[in-house]
Amino acid sequence: MTDFWIFTLSGAGALFILLAAIGILKMPDFYLRVSVTTKAATLGVGLILVASAFAFDHFSVTSRVLAILVFIILTAPVGAHMIGRAANFIGVKMWDKSEFNDLEDKYDKKSHKLK
């Protein structure tokens, strides 16, 4: 039964990480790349970590896995938000087929605060 969970969880995790890697290569602009990589890679790494918790089946490993998991889930959206905000300020272009930009003219160019 433990083997079944290791096979399933690590297989699904590797699949999600592969999808994230294909996504960062094929997506047309920076914002779509951020959006596709943050979610898929976090889910994939989380699944592989849970698989390792099943494989070791020991309290010390499970607590370490939980610590890494909570840290990744907390920090991945924060990092993605920060780099997306910085890219918005330095003027990274959107894809030319994007319909509209909600943040256009909402920020003060000098002070980087909302108008």
Partner: peptide, 22 residues
């Protein structure tokens, strides 16, 4: 751009976590 490279670096280290776990 440089922001694409930052995101790629972040993703590489995240995949590194998965590799170390395996």
């Amino acid at each position: 751009g440089i922001s694409d490279r930052v995101v790629a670096l972040d993703l590489m280290i995240t995949i590194g976590i998965a590799i170390i776990t395996v």
